[in-house]
Design a protein around this nucleic acid. Sequence first.
DNA 1: TTTAGTTGGTTTATGCAATCAACCAACATG
DNA 2: CATGTTGGTTGATTGCATAAACCAACTAAA
Lengths: 375, 375
Amino acid sequence: MRKRANKGNYTRVLRKIWLSEGISRIEIADYLGLDKSTITNITAALQRDGIITEMSEGDAGPQGGRKPIKLKIEKNFYAAAGIEVQPDCCNVICINLLGEVLFSRKIKFEMDIFQFPIFFSKLIKDIKSDLNEKRVILAGAGIGVSGIVNPEKGAILESIPLGINEEFPLLDKLSAMVDVPVFIDNDGNCCCWGELVFNRAEQLQDFIYCFVEFRDDCGVAIGLGVAIDGKVHYGRNYSAGEFRSVFMEGENSGQIAILNDERINKEDDSDLFEKISSELGRNIALLVNTFALSDCFIGGDLTTAQLEIMSRALRTEFNRNWSYPGESECRIRASSLRELSVAYGAASMIIDSLFRIPAVRDTGSAEFDIPGRII
Amino acid sequence: MRKRANKGNYTRVLRKIWLSEGISRIEIADYLGLDKSTITNITAALQRDGIITEMSEGDAGPQGGRKPIKLKIEKNFYAAAGIEVQPDCCNVICINLLGEVLFSRKIKFEMDIFQFPIFFSKLIKDIKSDLNEKRVILAGAGIGVSGIVNPEKGAILESIPLGINEEFPLLDKLSAMVDVPVFIDNDGNCCCWGELVFNRAEQLQDFIYCFVEFRDDCGVAIGLGVAIDGKVHYGRNYSAGEFRSVFMEGENSGQIAILNDERINKEDDSDLFEKISSELGRNIALLVNTFALSDCFIGGDLTTAQLEIMSRALRTEFNRNWSYPGESECRIRASSLRELSVAYGAASMIIDSLFRIPAVRDTGSAEFDIPGRII
DNA sequence: TTTAGTTGGTTTATGCAATCAACCAACATG
DNA sequence: CATGTTGGTTGATTGCATAAACCAACTAAA
């Protein structure tokens, strides 16, 4: 059929086991609409590869019959690294196939896009040797940056904090230095990847991630990430998620109308923060209700109190914009991983790619291979 | 491999010919990443079936070589019917595989959901006999209704104009009476289907359709339809597209804040209409920019003058909400089919289904078959 | 007119994923 | 202990896609 590539149903089976740990062969066959013998063959190959194992026997059904054999992912078969790039430092994380955090650290690095490849390749080398002690292989590294990113080409199209205003082919520089796949994406989108992976059992379809950051210069920065149909949504020119409040007038720069008059400091003015939250909520309510999103995640560097304020404000505004009797059906949730969201999400891109069913693309599809691991 | 089902690549080839009339076998092979012999086999089968034909020879390349043979869809191999259900009448349309209108008519019918199935089956019988004279076979019928629809089950979940406030399994009633596939969807979504099919060569990915209607009772009604990734987006509970302005306060019913104070009649007050357009524009701007949509279609029963006013207002508001230098990149376009948009779109659902590549679903996929046409 | 080179398309043999049908394995119940 | 039920495996078969060789039809240049 194809040279070597991920044979379609292999990934479907693998993904299902990933989503539903402890599932049996028969259940997979029913779920995927394949013959049970096909599942036998595929699971046998996956077991040979070592990426899944049998965990235990389940219980027989009420009418007797053979006990099912539960299957699970060998969670430390691979690990993925995630790196959040900030102006003055990097947050680094390593997670395994189930999204469990193996380790994380913060590294000082005065961001300079031309120095970064060297820094990056050293970092990967360190991570690899750390993982080597645990007998885990690195499957790849994800990078999350603020700005507009083309993740297919791995190019940064624009990034104010990184001082990039024309297309910069970062991936090309990086792949030349390391021998693992590297993915790059916008920070808000990374957060979406993170929630997709972390909450994979829920099979989230349509949600928004609202990323709030306090910046020394410009007050508050809002980044949005959107997932539609269980995939991160990029839109034209990969610019989805750029936020500007509907209440902004004229040529003003900035994102929130309230902040044209006032300034906010990180943790003191909860009154103003509430106003900001309300304005933000009004905006997001329109998005949430017109697109019928099921979840709204809140993340960024917020205190617990601020999170609380914002949740309430969002809830109020979602209901205000709700056309039907009763309350808005959108869940409001705090980000699952707090200050490590971006790094975690960056790593999740790699994990997700291992278990994602390749779409039947319109145009010819070129799969890519995963490194190492002698089979 | 599989029983009979639409063999995946058959549909991919067929779709490509549908999208690019006059394409050659080699071009298809290159585009889809398949071997040219595979395309030979598939096109041979499609020719046997009669759904495609060779149209003419193209020109040889600059360095000589054999001339390519252009392929095209046999456009009258099937037709699809589309029915827009309104409280007092139905707009009916018939289109062929290329989306060309074969005929259309308006039929008086005092909508009553319990009488509708009988009306519908007579209508289909009439359409079939009309098509029979042209030697065209009916592939199916699409129905567009105002309200919230579950198109998978073919159930109307809620519709104020039709007086439905609990789930009504319309499809079940209808399929019992006719022998062709029937699809039902919300009117705004139908319009999206229509644009997807009508502009298929563009391969539209992410766009919004804004459906404006004047109603005797409530002034103006706004319906939105959204397409993401070349597919209509439904969201949680199929409720995507329900619109309520961010400027609405408190418990007010209605959609537009301006109209809480004022009333508008169909064609006289262009000042007020401009205000409405601006408010609407502010809202849509947020959607268009956050989701990075490439197009915004305007449809419904607007005069040319009103369309002009609204286009300008949208453009202004899109730019106001635009974060970057220059102008918003979202195209603003008048609906391609004016007052027949919904019916056309309803028919397009059927056409689209014939040429849509079945997604690799997570769960077992149950393909469905197309009626008639002795092969 | 001949020859070489290029591109479009078909034919034939082969590989391989998925299926079917028969079978084995392990449990419950009367 | 026979019987029914469910979980899972084995071996033969099916049919899609491929590769490689081939034919067809054209240009360009000698």
